[in-house]
Design a protein around this nucleic acid. Structure first.
Ligand SMILES: [Mn+2]
Ligand SMILES: [Mn+2]
Ligand SMILES: [Zn+2]
Ligand SMILES: [Zn+2]
Lengths: 147, 147
DNA sequence: TTATTAGATTATAATGATTATAAAATAAGA
DNA sequence: TCTTATTTTATAATCATTATAATCTAATAA
């Protein structure tokens, strides 16, 4: 209880069980989950929880700078509880997203920024994860199971 | 006519007026437009054109590696006719996306890539464009006009 | 040139993600 | 404990995107 308050109170938003559950899930999770993944999890503990609450909570947390909204997955929003500057590596097949905790000092000269105030950057490495690399074998298995 | 064929024929897809118009628009355009922006434009020349054709064409061109689908804008897909490796600078307010044509050699050591086959990277610089920076004044004007 | 046909376009329905609305519930402070 | 501003919930609405099926046409070859 105290923990929760200590951890979340600074946001100056009401501390509800649903919000605590959502933020707890995000913090114990390194997968950069989507809204439906978050909903699936917290809904197990709060069967009455609405999908709208997950959206509301996530939007509120983003607005308060408590979490970060990722863009790499064009199909749906993904969320990151770590708002410190860091980069990501995405699997182009399954859209798995992992952290890249390396420092890359990137400077963008003013004469190349067309009048923009440059605030930061984010590197998206992309590739194919090990599961998707070895999919040829698995594909056959799964296909044979399905068909 | 010959130009079109020379330009697009290599894709081994049927050369239709709609496809030519869509690709022409993309190539004369540095704004990384969305589907609806593309539709709005080509629909002026092909009033019978369907929204589905724009989606179909864009997906086909992406699949054939002729254009690139961008992810920075979480609200809608944006498209880039330049498939050569380059980076981008996005306005966090209006989502304007401009090119960053600088070479940044970024290496991701194997022991930091969790078994991924790393294929490339893309840097998203972000900031505030000049139009959005000066919005405070404009906002007042527009607000006073509206209210 | 004409006939054939695989592939493209169109109109439209369906889906999926996200946002909006309004009533009921509740956290937080007095 | 009381009050109230916020939040949650249920649900409808909206927006982007994909799927379907009928119609059309670019490309090929006779
Ligand atoms: Mn992360
Ligand atoms: Mn570009
Ligand atoms: Zn994968
Ligand atoms: Zn802007």
């Amino acid at each position: 209880m105290k923990k929760d308050i200590k951890k979340y109170k600074l946001l100056n938003i009401k501390l509800t069980p649903q919000r605590i559950a959502i933020l707890d899930y995000l913090e114990r999770n390194k997968t950069h989950p989507s809204v439906s993944e978050i909903f699936k999890y917290v809904n197990r503990r709060f069967p009455s929880m609405s999908f709208a609450t997950v959206y509301n909570t996530l939007n509120t947390l983003v607005q308060h700078g408590r979490i970060r909204e990722l863009t790499m997955d064009n199909d749906k929003k993904r969320f990151d509880p770590n708002t410190l500057p860091h980069h990501h590596l995405t699997c182009i097949k399954c859209k798995r997203i992992i952290d890249v905790d390396l420092d890359y000092p990137l400077s963008l000269p003013e004469n190349k920024s067309s009048g923009f105030k440059v605030l930061g950057n984010h590197i998206e490495f992309y590739g194919i994860c090990s599961e998707c690399s070895s999919l040829n074998k698995q594909q056959k298995k799964k296909l044979s199971e399905i068909i």
